[in-house]
């Protein structure tokens, strides 16, 4: 259980970034910080961070965003599941192959969120809701390096 607090801290920071006030025109582009963070930790420590973490994290995010309870939980569990299946391949991918996979993973995340929001009757009017997948993929190298440094520094295992 070494360095557990580093994981918690990174999720907390991701949560703050997820609700940070942004200018109106950037609203649709906001990267899915929590999903990015989760993807990293699942790939790095699949035996520690998995479905249950994703579930709790998603519920926390639902509360933060004022979304229906279960929306982000559902999306993040699906993402975590895919990561758990793919992590051995993802680890040997090059950076840009990884970014491509992250694009797909966050895209799936957005689709699931959109599906649940449509149940609620407040779906997005256009395909703009997929933009976070693009911005998240572009930010992946940054997140990867940052979290990897953190993990090595504090020997999280």
């Amino acid at each position: 259980m070494q360095g557990y607090w580093v994981i918690l801290l990174s999720f907390f920071v991701a949560g703050v970034l997820a609700v940070l006030p942004m200018p109106q025109w950037l609203q649709w582009v906001r990267p899915e910080w929590v999903a990015l963070c989760l993807i990293y930790w699942v790939i790095a420590l699949p035996h520690r961070v998995g479905i249950l973490t994703a579930l709790l994290l998603g519920m926390g995010l639902d509360i933060l965003e004022g979304a229906m309870l279960g929306q982000n939980a559902f999306a993040l569990v699906v993402v975590a599941l895919l990561c758990l299946i793919l992590y051995q391949r993802l680890r040997v991918f090059s950076l840009w192959q990884q970014a491509g996979t992250v694009f797909v993973l966050v895209g799936v995340n957005q689709l699931v969120c959109q599906w649940v929001q449509n149940l609620q009757g407040i779906g997005a009017p256009s395909l703009l809701f997929l933009l976070p997948a693009v911005s998240s993929a572009l930010l992946w190298p940054l997140v990867l390096h940052l979290l990897r440094e953190l993990r090595r520094q504090y020997a999280v295992a």
Partner: peptide, 27 residues
């Protein structure tokens, strides 16, 4: 199990508004 929990949560929130107090606590 996680999927079951999620489906339960979504139904409870969407159809029955049962989670008001839980939400308030977590918020």
């Amino acid at each position: 199990l996680a999927i079951l929990v999620i489906l339960g949560l979504i139904t409870a929130d969407l159809r029955y508004n049962r989670l008001e107090t839980t939400r308030s606590l977590l918020a």
